[in-house]
Simulated assay, not measured.
Amino acid sequence: MNRIAVLGSANMDLVVRQSRLPRPGETIFGSGFDTVPGGKGLNQAVAAARLGGAVDFLGALGADAYGTQLRALLATEGIRSTGVRESSESTGTAHISVVDSGENSIVVVSGANATVTDLDDTQRTTIADAAFLVMQCELPVAVLVQAIAVAREAGVFTVLTPAPVMPLPDGFLSSVDLVVPNQIEAEELTGESDPVRAAESLSANKTWAIVTLGAEGSVIAYNGEVLGLAPARPVQAVDTTAAGDTFVGALVARLALKVGGSVPVSEDDMVEALRWATVASSVAVTRVGATTSMPSLAEVAAILA
């Protein structure tokens, strides 16, 4: 089976539900609190595994209670974790405020994630042996650059979620096979407020780009040309946390079931994978939490049947 290597962050999400965000200096009451496994890397790994992907997770966890819980989750989800280091820093945390409309705001404390500044031999081998490499920007940029170099040499298909947006080396984005930002991230990266133009810019030089637009769907482009707008599946959202990560994990899992990393991804393959990703993310927003909201392969298949 074509394996998916996910290089990224792993956090424990500390989630507060409330009617609205407080103003500066204001104290308000919340309506609920949960601790939920998260982090963009871990989220994408879990989403891909639940959608049928064979997944390796690469990153770092602290030698603390949160780290123990996240290692247990990886094992439960069938995700291989030989590329997870133990750090003297605490496991990363994300402090999430979810308002009644379903929207959220997030503050991340990187902890052990910030210690992943270069790849060890196990991580390099795992990437080289994979069909797909999936990354985000919650790890230091230096390790992302190394991972891209290893993947390109081995002919591995690379996927980047450029979140949070940060300065990247010249040519980095164009060296990625698929970039998946949301509309805000796409505008920050390109200066284009129009998501169609942003997708055209991001997809230059034979790169795939999918700009997600929430309830408006997503724009897909390749090699500087927009191929179309994929509509969203209408649902009543209760929590948008990890919707984007679910989208990416499902997308790559579907691609991995159809093509290998060394085989060019066709437009038909990408469009079909996009359908699965759209449905998976639509299910996730109807549930509370990050990994707790992600659907199974059977759930998505039943909706698409």
Rank of each mutant, 00 (worst) to 15 (best):
A112W: 04
T27N: 08
G214A: 01
E272M: 07
A232N: 09
E77P: 14
T122H: 11
D56Q: 06
A198R: 08
D177M: 15
L227S: 05
S193W: 12
V134G: 06
A49L: 01
A302W: 07
P169W: 15
E86F: 10
L178F: 10
T76Q: 11
L251H: 02
D245Q: 00
C137D: 07
S105T: 09
T35D: 15
Q183K: 09
R254T: 13
S266A: 04
R20G: 02
N104M: 03
A151C: 06
C137S: 06
R152F: 10
Q136V: 02
G214R: 03
R85C: 06
S175Y: 11
S262E: 13
G59H: 07
G217C: 10
E86A: 04
P234E: 13
P169R: 09
L133R: 10
Q44M: 02
L257Y: 09
A114C: 12
E267S: 03
A5V: 05
A198G: 08
L74Q: 01
I127F: 13
A47S: 08
Q123P: 05
T122C: 06
V235G: 01
T286L: 02
E86W: 15
E185A: 01
W276D: 01
S81L: 12
A280H: 09
A49V: 03
K40N: 08
A151M: 10
V98Q: 09
P164S: 00
A277K: 01
G224H: 08
G261L: 15
L7E: 11
D268I: 09
D100Y: 10
D177L: 14
V300I: 07
V248F: 08
V46P: 01
V165A: 06
E299F: 04
L168Q: 11
D129M: 05
S90Q: 13
L304E: 05
M1Q: 07
R85F: 06
R71F: 15
F157V: 08
V98H: 07
D245G: 00
D13Q: 04
T286M: 07
R124W: 08
L213F: 07
P231W: 03
P37L: 14
I184Q: 07
A243Q: 13
R287I: 02
H95I: 07
I127G: 05
G38K: 04
T91G: 02
S9W: 14
V179E: 12
A112R: 14
S81Q: 14
A142G: 05
S266M: 05
T212N: 08
R50M: 00
E192A: 10
K258P: 12
R124F: 09
A48C: 02
Q18Y: 09
D100T: 10
G38Q: 04
E138Q: 01
L73G: 00
Q183E: 15
S203D: 10
L229H: 11
